[in-house]
Design a protein around this nucleic acid. Sequence first.
DNA 1: ATCTTATGTGGACAGTGTTCACGAAGAAAG
DNA 2: CTTTCTTCGTGAACACTGTCCACATAAGAT
Lengths: 248, 248
Amino acid sequence: MVGRREALRTELLASVREAARDQLRAVGPADLSLRAIARDVGISPAGLYRYYDGRDALLTMLITDGYTDLADHLFLAQGLAEEVSDLGRTRQVPEAADADAPPLDRLRATWRTYRTWSLAHPNEFHLLFGQPIEGYAAPLDGATTRANARMARALVLPAYVAWQSGDLDVPDLADPPHGLHRLAEAISEEAPVPVSASFAARTLAWWSVLHGAVALELNGQFRWLDEDATGDLFAATLEATLDAARPD
Amino acid sequence: MVGRREALRTELLASVREAARDQLRAVGPADLSLRAIARDVGISPAGLYRYYDGRDALLTMLITDGYTDLADHLFLAQGLAEEVSDLGRTRQVPEAADADAPPLDRLRATWRTYRTWSLAHPNEFHLLFGQPIEGYAAPLDGATTRANARMARALVLPAYVAWQSGDLDVPDLADPPHGLHRLAEAISEEAPVPVSASFAARTLAWWSVLHGAVALELNGQFRWLDEDATGDLFAATLEATLDAARPD
DNA sequence: ATCTTATGTGGACAGTGTTCACGAAGAAAG
DNA sequence: CTTTCTTCGTGAACACTGTCCACATAAGAT
Protein backbone atom coordinates (compact mmCIF):
# COMPACT_ATOMS: atom_id res chain seq x y z
CA MET A 1 0.00 0.00 0.00
CA VAL A 2 1.21 3.46 -0.86
CA GLY A 3 0.92 6.03 1.91
CA ARG A 4 -0.53 9.45 1.36
CA ARG A 5 2.87 10.95 2.09
CA GLU A 6 4.69 8.92 -0.50
CA ALA A 7 2.12 9.79 -3.11
CA LEU A 8 2.54 13.48 -2.49
CA ARG A 9 6.29 13.09 -2.70
CA THR A 10 6.35 11.45 -6.12
CA GLU A 11 3.84 14.00 -7.34
CA LEU A 12 5.93 16.91 -6.14
CA LEU A 13 9.06 15.31 -7.58
CA ALA A 14 7.36 15.24 -10.95
CA SER A 15 6.20 18.81 -10.50
CA VAL A 16 9.70 20.04 -9.86
CA ARG A 17 10.97 18.07 -12.81
CA GLU A 18 8.42 19.62 -15.09
CA ALA A 19 9.06 23.10 -13.78
CA ALA A 20 12.78 22.66 -14.33
CA ARG A 21 12.27 21.50 -17.90
CA ASP A 22 9.89 24.38 -18.54
CA GLN A 23 12.40 26.86 -17.28
CA LEU A 24 15.25 25.29 -19.24
CA ARG A 25 13.15 25.71 -22.34
CA ALA A 26 13.14 29.44 -21.69
CA VAL A 27 16.39 30.59 -20.20
CA GLY A 28 19.41 28.43 -20.85
CA PRO A 29 21.33 26.21 -18.47
CA ALA A 30 23.53 28.88 -16.90
CA ASP A 31 20.62 31.04 -15.83
CA LEU A 32 18.55 28.20 -14.47
CA SER A 33 17.28 29.57 -11.19
CA LEU A 34 16.59 27.23 -8.32
CA ARG A 35 14.53 29.85 -6.59
CA ALA A 36 12.37 30.41 -9.66
CA ILE A 37 11.68 26.68 -9.87
CA ALA A 38 10.69 26.69 -6.22
CA ARG A 39 8.36 29.60 -6.91
CA ASP A 40 6.74 27.77 -9.81
CA VAL A 41 6.10 24.71 -7.74
CA GLY A 42 4.85 26.80 -4.85
CA ILE A 43 7.47 25.85 -2.32
CA SER A 44 10.19 27.68 -0.45
CA PRO A 45 13.74 27.56 -1.89
CA ALA A 46 14.98 25.64 1.11
CA GLY A 47 12.20 23.12 0.83
CA LEU A 48 13.40 22.17 -2.62
CA TYR A 49 16.45 20.61 -1.02
CA ARG A 50 14.28 17.83 0.35
CA TYR A 51 13.71 16.70 -3.23
CA TYR A 52 16.79 17.64 -5.18
CA ASP A 53 20.02 18.22 -3.32
CA GLY A 54 20.98 21.55 -4.81
CA ARG A 55 21.47 22.85 -8.31
CA ASP A 56 23.84 20.09 -9.36
CA ALA A 57 21.20 17.46 -8.71
CA LEU A 58 18.73 19.43 -10.82
CA LEU A 59 21.26 19.60 -13.62
CA THR A 60 22.07 15.91 -13.37
CA MET A 61 18.40 15.14 -13.74
CA LEU A 62 17.98 17.52 -16.67
CA ILE A 63 21.03 16.12 -18.45
CA THR A 64 19.82 12.58 -18.01
CA ASP A 65 16.39 13.55 -19.28
CA GLY A 66 17.94 15.32 -22.24
CA TYR A 67 20.04 12.37 -23.32
CA THR A 68 17.17 9.93 -23.05
CA ASP A 69 14.84 12.26 -24.91
CA LEU A 70 17.34 12.70 -27.74
CA ALA A 71 18.03 8.97 -27.81
CA ASP A 72 14.31 8.21 -28.00
CA HIS A 73 13.92 10.52 -30.96
CA LEU A 74 16.91 8.93 -32.68
CA PHE A 75 15.63 5.41 -32.12
CA LEU A 76 12.18 6.33 -33.37
CA ALA A 77 13.64 8.00 -36.44
CA GLN A 78 15.30 4.76 -37.48
CA GLY A 79 12.17 2.75 -36.80
CA LEU A 80 13.21 1.10 -33.56
CA ALA A 81 10.20 1.90 -31.40
CA GLU A 82 10.94 -1.09 -29.21
CA GLU A 83 14.09 0.59 -27.94
CA VAL A 84 12.29 3.49 -26.32
CA SER A 85 10.99 2.65 -22.90
CA ASP A 86 8.60 5.50 -22.25
CA LEU A 87 6.46 6.12 -25.29
CA GLY A 88 3.83 8.80 -25.17
CA ARG A 89 6.01 11.77 -24.54
CA THR A 90 8.09 11.13 -27.62
CA ARG A 91 5.09 10.13 -29.67
CA GLN A 92 5.10 12.78 -32.33
CA VAL A 93 8.52 12.51 -33.96
CA PRO A 94 8.24 14.08 -37.42
CA GLU A 95 9.98 11.50 -39.55
CA ALA A 96 9.75 8.08 -37.97
CA ALA A 97 11.15 5.67 -40.53
CA ASP A 98 9.87 2.22 -41.11
CA ALA A 99 12.06 -0.53 -39.71
CA ASP A 100 12.02 -2.11 -43.16
CA ALA A 101 13.21 0.99 -44.96
CA PRO A 102 16.59 0.85 -46.73
CA PRO A 103 19.44 1.18 -44.21
CA LEU A 104 20.77 4.33 -45.84
CA ASP A 105 17.39 6.01 -45.53
CA ARG A 106 17.18 5.09 -41.88
CA LEU A 107 20.67 6.46 -41.36
CA ARG A 108 19.70 9.68 -43.10
CA ALA A 109 16.55 10.01 -41.00
CA THR A 110 18.54 9.49 -37.82
CA TRP A 111 21.06 12.15 -38.72
CA ARG A 112 18.36 14.62 -39.72
CA THR A 113 16.61 14.00 -36.44
CA TYR A 114 19.82 14.85 -34.57
CA ARG A 115 19.62 18.29 -36.15
CA THR A 116 15.86 18.67 -35.83
CA TRP A 117 15.90 17.83 -32.14
CA SER A 118 18.81 20.17 -31.47
CA LEU A 119 17.21 23.10 -33.25
CA ALA A 120 13.98 22.48 -31.37
CA HIS A 121 15.76 22.21 -28.01
CA PRO A 122 18.72 24.58 -28.18
CA ASN A 123 19.11 24.90 -24.44
CA GLU A 124 19.07 21.17 -23.92
CA PHE A 125 21.66 20.85 -26.66
CA HIS A 126 23.93 23.30 -24.90
CA LEU A 127 23.33 21.58 -21.60
CA LEU A 128 24.29 18.20 -23.06
CA PHE A 129 27.10 19.23 -25.38
CA GLY A 130 28.13 22.67 -24.25
CA GLN A 131 30.60 23.59 -21.64
CA PRO A 132 30.27 21.79 -18.31
CA ILE A 133 28.58 24.07 -15.78
CA GLU A 134 30.95 25.56 -13.20
CA GLY A 135 32.98 22.54 -12.33
CA TYR A 136 30.00 20.25 -12.46
CA ALA A 137 31.19 16.69 -13.01
CA ALA A 138 28.74 13.98 -13.88
CA PRO A 139 29.06 10.93 -11.67
CA LEU A 140 30.85 8.46 -13.92
CA ASP A 141 28.81 5.44 -12.91
CA GLY A 142 25.54 7.27 -12.62
CA ALA A 143 22.43 7.52 -14.70
CA THR A 144 23.89 10.39 -16.68
CA THR A 145 26.63 8.25 -18.15
CA ARG A 146 24.19 5.45 -18.93
CA ALA A 147 21.87 7.82 -20.78
CA ASN A 148 24.82 9.29 -22.63
CA ALA A 149 25.97 5.86 -23.74
CA ARG A 150 22.48 4.96 -24.89
CA MET A 151 22.35 8.11 -27.01
CA ALA A 152 25.73 7.23 -28.53
CA ARG A 153 24.41 3.77 -29.33
CA ALA A 154 21.35 5.23 -31.03
CA LEU A 155 23.72 7.22 -33.20
CA VAL A 156 26.17 4.44 -34.04
CA LEU A 157 23.62 1.71 -34.63
CA PRO A 158 22.17 2.82 -38.00
CA ALA A 159 25.65 3.38 -39.40
CA TYR A 160 26.56 -0.09 -38.27
CA VAL A 161 23.49 -1.57 -39.91
CA ALA A 162 24.20 0.21 -43.18
CA TRP A 163 27.76 -1.01 -43.05
CA GLN A 164 26.72 -4.61 -42.40
CA SER A 165 24.24 -4.55 -45.24
CA GLY A 166 26.91 -3.39 -47.61
CA ASP A 167 25.49 0.05 -48.27
CA LEU A 168 28.46 1.76 -46.70
CA ASP A 169 32.08 0.98 -47.35
CA VAL A 170 34.95 1.97 -45.15
CA PRO A 171 38.46 1.42 -46.49
CA ASP A 172 40.81 -0.20 -44.00
CA LEU A 173 43.46 2.09 -42.70
CA ALA A 174 46.90 0.92 -43.71
CA ASP A 175 48.33 1.44 -40.27
CA PRO A 176 45.53 1.91 -37.74
CA PRO A 177 46.89 3.85 -34.77
CA HIS A 178 47.22 2.03 -31.51
CA GLY A 179 44.49 3.84 -29.61
CA LEU A 180 41.85 3.04 -32.19
CA HIS A 181 42.01 -0.67 -31.48
CA ARG A 182 40.80 -0.12 -27.97
CA LEU A 183 38.09 2.14 -29.36
CA ALA A 184 37.01 -0.66 -31.67
CA GLU A 185 36.90 -3.08 -28.77
CA ALA A 186 34.70 -0.71 -26.81
CA ILE A 187 32.27 -0.37 -29.68
CA SER A 188 32.36 -4.08 -30.42
CA GLU A 189 31.02 -4.81 -26.95
CA GLU A 190 27.82 -3.02 -27.93
CA ALA A 191 27.54 -4.31 -31.46
CA PRO A 192 26.41 -7.80 -32.47
CA VAL A 193 29.49 -8.32 -34.61
CA PRO A 194 32.99 -6.96 -33.87
CA VAL A 195 33.90 -3.84 -35.80
CA SER A 196 37.26 -2.94 -37.18
CA ALA A 197 39.33 -0.07 -35.86
CA SER A 198 38.83 1.69 -39.16
CA PHE A 199 35.07 1.48 -38.94
CA ALA A 200 35.08 2.66 -35.34
CA ALA A 201 37.13 5.70 -36.26
CA ARG A 202 34.94 6.44 -39.24
CA THR A 203 31.82 6.30 -37.12
CA LEU A 204 33.11 8.93 -34.76
CA ALA A 205 34.15 11.01 -37.74
CA TRP A 206 30.56 10.89 -38.99
CA TRP A 207 29.34 11.97 -35.59
CA SER A 208 31.82 14.83 -35.80
CA VAL A 209 30.44 16.13 -39.09
CA LEU A 210 26.93 15.82 -37.81
CA HIS A 211 27.64 17.46 -34.50
CA GLY A 212 29.81 20.20 -35.96
CA ALA A 213 27.22 21.17 -38.55
CA VAL A 214 24.53 21.43 -35.90
CA ALA A 215 26.72 23.20 -33.37
CA LEU A 216 27.94 25.80 -35.84
CA GLU A 217 24.42 26.48 -37.06
CA LEU A 218 23.05 26.68 -33.54
CA ASN A 219 25.82 29.01 -32.50
CA GLY A 220 24.98 31.41 -35.29
CA GLN A 221 28.12 30.90 -37.36
CA PHE A 222 25.89 30.53 -40.41
CA ARG A 223 23.79 33.53 -39.49
CA TRP A 224 24.71 35.35 -42.69
CA LEU A 225 22.85 32.65 -44.59
CA ASP A 226 19.10 32.78 -44.83
CA GLU A 227 16.97 30.26 -43.06
CA ASP A 228 16.38 27.71 -45.78
CA ALA A 229 19.96 27.88 -47.00
CA THR A 230 21.16 26.33 -43.75
CA GLY A 231 18.85 23.42 -44.34
CA ASP A 232 20.20 22.97 -47.85
CA LEU A 233 23.73 23.21 -46.54
CA PHE A 234 23.06 20.55 -43.94
CA ALA A 235 21.56 18.22 -46.54
CA ALA A 236 24.54 18.77 -48.86
CA THR A 237 26.95 18.09 -46.02
CA LEU A 238 25.28 14.80 -45.19
CA GLU A 239 25.17 13.69 -48.81
CA ALA A 240 28.83 14.51 -49.28
CA THR A 241 29.63 12.47 -46.20
CA LEU A 242 27.64 9.53 -47.47
CA ASP A 243 29.09 9.81 -50.97
CA ALA A 244 32.55 9.44 -49.55
CA ALA A 245 31.50 6.07 -48.13
CA ARG A 246 29.60 4.74 -51.15
CA PRO A 247 30.76 1.32 -52.27
CA ASP A 248 31.75 0.87 -55.98
CA MET B 1 51.06 65.42 -26.42
CA VAL B 2 49.36 62.79 -24.30
CA GLY B 3 48.04 63.98 -20.97
CA ARG B 4 48.85 62.24 -17.75
CA ARG B 5 45.21 61.33 -17.36
CA GLU B 6 44.91 59.72 -20.75
CA ALA B 7 48.00 57.63 -20.16
CA LEU B 8 46.60 56.26 -16.93
CA ARG B 9 43.37 55.45 -18.68
CA THR B 10 44.88 53.35 -21.44
CA GLU B 11 47.05 51.62 -18.88
CA LEU B 12 44.10 50.73 -16.71
CA LEU B 13 42.13 49.63 -19.75
CA ALA B 14 44.90 47.19 -20.54
CA SER B 15 45.02 46.08 -16.93
CA VAL B 16 41.34 45.26 -16.91
CA ARG B 17 41.70 43.44 -20.20
CA GLU B 18 44.51 41.32 -18.88
CA ALA B 19 42.69 40.58 -15.63
CA ALA B 20 39.62 39.51 -17.58
CA ARG B 21 41.64 37.18 -19.79
CA ASP B 22 43.40 35.75 -16.76
CA GLN B 23 40.12 35.05 -15.07
CA LEU B 24 38.60 33.55 -18.20
CA ARG B 25 41.54 31.16 -18.33
CA ALA B 26 40.48 29.90 -14.92
CA VAL B 27 36.75 29.88 -14.52
CA GLY B 28 34.71 29.72 -17.69
CA PRO B 29 32.59 32.41 -19.31
CA ALA B 30 29.44 31.93 -17.25
CA ASP B 31 31.24 32.43 -13.94
CA LEU B 32 33.22 35.41 -15.06
CA SER B 33 32.87 37.78 -12.13
CA LEU B 34 32.94 41.49 -12.73
CA ARG B 35 33.65 42.12 -9.08
CA ALA B 36 36.59 39.74 -9.06
CA ILE B 37 38.10 41.54 -12.02
CA ALA B 38 37.68 44.83 -10.21
CA ARG B 39 39.39 43.32 -7.18
CA ASP B 40 42.31 42.13 -9.28
CA VAL B 41 42.80 45.54 -10.82
CA GLY B 42 42.43 47.21 -7.45
CA ILE B 43 39.34 49.22 -8.20
CA SER B 44 35.80 49.29 -6.90
CA PRO B 45 33.14 47.38 -8.85
CA ALA B 46 31.35 50.58 -9.71
CA GLY B 47 34.54 52.18 -10.94
CA LEU B 48 34.90 49.49 -13.54
CA TYR B 49 31.89 50.94 -15.33
CA ARG B 50 33.98 53.96 -16.35
CA TYR B 51 36.04 51.61 -18.52
CA TYR B 52 33.74 48.83 -19.60
CA ASP B 53 30.01 49.38 -19.56
CA GLY B 54 28.96 46.27 -17.70
CA ARG B 55 29.51 42.58 -18.19
CA ASP B 56 28.36 42.53 -21.79
CA ALA B 57 31.09 44.94 -22.79
CA LEU B 58 33.66 42.76 -21.07
CA LEU B 59 32.35 39.75 -22.95
CA THR B 60 32.34 41.59 -26.26
CA MET B 61 35.97 42.47 -25.72
CA LEU B 62 36.88 38.91 -24.73
CA ILE B 63 35.08 37.44 -27.71
CA THR B 64 36.80 39.81 -30.09
CA ASP B 65 40.16 39.01 -28.54
CA GLY B 66 39.44 35.31 -28.77
CA TYR B 67 38.56 35.39 -32.46
CA THR B 68 41.62 37.43 -33.38
CA ASP B 69 43.90 35.23 -31.30
CA LEU B 70 42.56 32.10 -32.94
CA ALA B 71 42.77 33.71 -36.38
CA ASP B 72 46.37 34.73 -35.74
CA HIS B 73 47.29 31.19 -34.84
CA LEU B 74 45.55 29.85 -37.92
CA PHE B 75 47.29 32.33 -40.21
CA LEU B 76 50.67 31.56 -38.68
CA ALA B 77 50.08 27.84 -39.01
CA GLN B 78 49.65 28.20 -42.76
CA GLY B 79 52.69 30.42 -43.03
CA LEU B 80 50.94 33.74 -43.53
CA ALA B 81 52.71 35.83 -40.92
CA GLU B 82 51.91 38.99 -42.83
CA GLU B 83 48.24 38.56 -42.06
CA VAL B 84 48.63 38.89 -38.31
CA SER B 85 48.76 42.47 -37.19
CA ASP B 86 50.08 42.16 -33.69
CA LEU B 87 52.97 39.72 -33.63
CA GLY B 88 54.73 39.07 -30.37
CA ARG B 89 51.87 37.69 -28.39
CA THR B 90 51.22 34.95 -30.89
CA ARG B 91 54.89 34.35 -31.46
CA GLN B 92 55.26 30.77 -30.30
CA VAL B 93 52.80 28.82 -32.39
CA PRO B 94 53.94 25.19 -32.32
CA GLU B 95 53.70 24.27 -35.96
CA ALA B 96 54.11 27.32 -38.15
CA ALA B 97 54.30 26.03 -41.69
CA ASP B 98 56.44 27.52 -44.37
CA ALA B 99 54.57 29.57 -46.93
CA ASP B 100 56.21 27.42 -49.62
CA ALA B 101 55.09 24.14 -48.14
CA PRO B 102 52.69 22.01 -50.20
CA PRO B 103 49.13 23.34 -49.95
CA LEU B 104 47.81 20.16 -48.43
CA ASP B 105 50.38 20.31 -45.65
CA ARG B 106 49.47 23.89 -44.92
CA LEU B 107 45.82 22.91 -44.81
CA ARG B 108 46.61 20.07 -42.43
CA ALA B 109 48.64 22.36 -40.19
CA THR B 110 45.80 24.87 -40.08
CA TRP B 111 43.26 22.26 -39.10
CA ARG B 112 45.53 20.79 -36.45
CA THR B 113 46.06 24.25 -35.03
CA TYR B 114 42.31 24.71 -34.73
CA ARG B 115 42.30 21.74 -32.37
CA THR B 116 45.50 22.65 -30.56
CA TRP B 117 44.33 26.17 -29.84
CA SER B 118 40.93 24.96 -28.65
CA LEU B 119 42.38 22.36 -26.31
CA ALA B 120 44.77 24.96 -24.92
CA HIS B 121 42.00 27.54 -24.46
CA PRO B 122 38.86 25.59 -23.60
CA ASN B 123 37.06 28.49 -21.98
CA GLU B 124 37.75 30.77 -24.91
CA PHE B 125 36.45 28.05 -27.20
CA HIS B 126 33.23 27.85 -25.25
CA LEU B 127 32.95 31.60 -25.19
CA LEU B 128 33.34 31.82 -28.96
CA PHE B 129 31.40 28.75 -30.02
CA GLY B 130 29.31 27.79 -27.03
CA GLN B 131 25.91 29.00 -26.14
CA PRO B 132 25.38 32.75 -26.22
CA ILE B 133 25.53 34.15 -22.69
CA GLU B 134 22.11 35.05 -21.27
CA GLY B 135 20.61 36.82 -24.22
CA TYR B 136 23.86 38.47 -25.13
CA ALA B 137 23.79 39.48 -28.79
CA ALA B 138 26.92 40.64 -30.53
CA PRO B 139 26.48 43.93 -32.35
CA LEU B 140 26.23 42.86 -35.97
CA ASP B 141 28.37 45.64 -37.38
CA GLY B 142 30.81 45.70 -34.52
CA ALA B 143 34.33 44.51 -34.00
CA THR B 144 33.11 41.11 -32.89
CA THR B 145 31.63 40.31 -36.25
CA ARG B 146 34.73 41.57 -38.05
CA ALA B 147 36.99 39.37 -35.94
CA ASN B 148 34.66 36.45 -36.50
CA ALA B 149 34.76 36.93 -40.25
CA ARG B 150 38.55 37.17 -40.21
CA MET B 151 38.74 33.86 -38.36
CA ALA B 152 36.42 32.27 -40.91
CA ARG B 153 38.66 33.58 -43.66
CA ALA B 154 41.73 32.09 -42.00
CA LEU B 155 39.92 28.77 -42.04
CA VAL B 156 38.62 28.89 -45.59
CA LEU B 157 41.75 30.28 -47.21
CA PRO B 158 44.04 27.21 -47.09
CA ALA B 159 41.26 24.99 -48.43
CA TYR B 160 40.79 27.46 -51.26
CA VAL B 161 44.51 27.44 -52.02
CA ALA B 162 44.64 23.66 -52.08
CA TRP B 163 41.63 23.60 -54.34
CA GLN B 164 43.10 26.13 -56.75
CA SER B 165 46.38 24.26 -56.95
CA GLY B 166 44.56 21.07 -57.87
CA ASP B 167 45.35 19.15 -54.69
CA LEU B 168 41.71 19.01 -53.71
CA ASP B 169 38.85 18.04 -55.92
CA VAL B 170 35.22 18.78 -55.25
CA PRO B 171 32.63 17.14 -57.49
CA ASP B 172 29.97 19.53 -58.71
CA LEU B 173 26.59 18.94 -57.23
CA ALA B 174 24.10 17.92 -59.85
CA ASP B 175 21.42 20.23 -58.57
CA PRO B 176 22.93 22.74 -56.17
CA PRO B 177 20.19 24.00 -53.87
CA HIS B 178 19.09 27.56 -54.19
CA GLY B 179 20.52 28.89 -50.94
CA LEU B 180 24.01 27.69 -51.70
CA HIS B 181 24.44 30.07 -54.59
CA ARG B 182 24.16 33.03 -52.29
CA LEU B 183 26.63 31.33 -49.97
CA ALA B 184 29.05 30.99 -52.87
CA GLU B 185 28.63 34.65 -53.71
CA ALA B 186 29.41 35.62 -50.14
CA ILE B 187 32.58 33.55 -50.11
CA SER B 188 33.57 34.74 -53.55
CA GLU B 189 33.71 38.31 -52.31
CA GLU B 190 36.56 37.30 -50.03
CA ALA B 191 38.37 35.02 -52.44
CA PRO B 192 40.51 36.15 -55.39
CA VAL B 193 38.61 33.92 -57.78
CA PRO B 194 34.89 33.11 -57.61
CA VAL B 195 34.08 29.76 -56.09
CA SER B 196 31.32 27.41 -57.08
CA ALA B 197 28.35 26.67 -54.89
CA SER B 198 29.59 23.13 -54.53
CA PHE B 199 32.96 24.26 -53.25
CA ALA B 200 31.40 26.70 -50.84
CA ALA B 201 29.21 24.01 -49.36
CA ARG B 202 32.11 21.61 -49.13
CA THR B 203 34.22 24.15 -47.29
CA LEU B 204 31.61 24.56 -44.60
CA ALA B 205 31.29 20.79 -44.41
CA TRP B 206 35.02 20.59 -43.70
CA TRP B 207 34.67 23.19 -41.01
CA SER B 208 31.87 21.09 -39.57
CA VAL B 209 34.03 17.96 -39.27
CA LEU B 210 36.81 19.97 -37.76
CA HIS B 211 34.60 21.80 -35.32
CA GLY B 212 32.59 18.75 -34.38
CA ALA B 213 35.65 16.65 -33.65
CA VAL B 214 37.08 19.35 -31.41
CA ALA B 215 33.79 20.14 -29.70
CA LEU B 216 33.01 16.51 -28.93
CA GLU B 217 36.49 15.91 -27.57
CA LEU B 218 36.42 19.07 -25.49
CA ASN B 219 33.02 18.21 -24.13
CA GLY B 220 34.26 14.88 -22.90
CA GLN B 221 32.28 12.70 -25.29
CA PHE B 222 35.49 10.78 -26.00
CA ARG B 223 36.41 10.55 -22.35
CA TRP B 224 36.35 6.76 -22.41
CA LEU B 225 39.30 6.87 -24.79
CA ASP B 226 42.76 7.41 -23.44
CA GLU B 227 44.63 10.62 -24.06
CA ASP B 228 46.70 9.68 -27.11
CA ALA B 229 43.83 7.81 -28.71
CA THR B 230 41.89 11.05 -29.17
CA GLY B 231 44.86 12.48 -31.03
CA ASP B 232 44.99 9.45 -33.28
CA LEU B 233 41.28 9.66 -33.82
CA PHE B 234 41.50 13.30 -34.82
CA ALA B 235 44.30 12.58 -37.27
CA ALA B 236 42.33 9.71 -38.78
CA THR B 237 39.27 11.92 -39.11
CA LEU B 238 41.20 14.58 -40.97
CA GLU B 239 42.84 12.10 -43.30
CA ALA B 240 39.51 10.50 -44.08
CA THR B 241 38.13 13.93 -44.89
CA LEU B 242 41.03 14.72 -47.17
CA ASP B 243 40.92 11.30 -48.83
CA ALA B 244 37.35 11.95 -49.83
CA ALA B 245 38.53 15.01 -51.75
CA ARG B 246 41.62 13.53 -53.37
CA PRO B 247 41.74 13.98 -57.13
CA ASP B 248 42.32 10.87 -59.29
C1' DA C 1 -0.97 8.64 23.31
C1' DT C 2 3.85 8.78 22.50
C1' DC C 3 7.84 8.65 19.67
C1' DT C 4 10.19 9.05 15.34
C1' DT C 5 10.84 10.60 10.95
C1' DA C 6 9.93 13.30 6.99
C1' DT C 7 8.48 17.85 5.31
C1' DG C 8 8.38 22.71 5.02
C1' DT C 9 9.54 27.50 6.62
C1' DG C 10 11.84 31.97 7.57
C1' DG C 11 16.07 33.91 8.37
C1' DA C 12 20.71 34.41 7.56
C1' DC C 13 25.22 34.47 4.85
C1' DA C 14 28.14 35.30 1.06
C1' DG C 15 28.08 36.07 -3.27
C1' DT C 16 26.52 38.49 -7.93
C1' DG C 17 25.52 42.76 -11.61
C1' DT C 18 23.98 47.33 -11.70
C1' DT C 19 22.66 52.15 -10.38
C1' DC C 20 23.13 56.45 -7.99
C1' DA C 21 24.58 60.54 -5.32
C1' DC C 22 28.66 62.43 -3.90
C1' DG C 23 33.51 63.83 -3.18
C1' DA C 24 38.23 64.26 -5.09
C1' DA C 25 41.48 65.18 -8.58
C1' DG C 26 43.09 66.61 -13.23
C1' DA C 27 42.47 69.91 -17.22
C1' DA C 28 41.22 74.16 -19.10
C1' DA C 29 39.84 79.02 -19.06
C1' DG C 30 39.60 83.55 -16.84
C1' DC D 1 46.42 82.11 -9.08
C1' DT D 2 41.50 81.24 -9.22
C1' DT D 3 37.53 79.53 -11.01
C1' DT D 4 34.94 76.27 -13.86
C1' DC D 5 34.28 71.89 -16.00
C1' DT D 6 34.91 67.18 -16.78
C1' DT D 7 36.57 62.78 -15.66
C1' DC D 8 37.45 59.36 -12.12
C1' DG D 9 36.54 56.62 -8.20
C1' DT D 10 33.92 55.44 -4.06
C1' DG D 11 30.49 53.55 -0.72
C1' DA D 12 25.98 52.47 -0.16
C1' DA D 13 21.97 50.48 -1.81
C1' DC D 14 18.85 47.21 -4.55
C1' DA D 15 17.39 42.99 -6.31
C1' DC D 16 18.90 38.99 -7.22
C1' DT D 17 21.37 34.13 -6.61
C1' DG D 18 22.60 29.16 -4.12
C1' DT D 19 23.15 27.15 0.26
C1' DC D 20 22.71 26.18 5.18
C1' DC D 21 20.51 25.96 9.78
C1' DA D 22 17.36 26.03 13.73
C1' DC D 23 12.76 25.41 14.26
C1' DA D 24 7.88 24.15 13.87
C1' DT D 25 4.49 21.06 11.85
C1' DA D 26 2.72 17.24 10.12
C1' DA D 27 2.41 12.01 9.03
C1' DG D 28 3.47 7.28 10.19
C1' DA D 29 4.67 3.72 13.52
C1' DT D 30 4.81 1.74 18.10
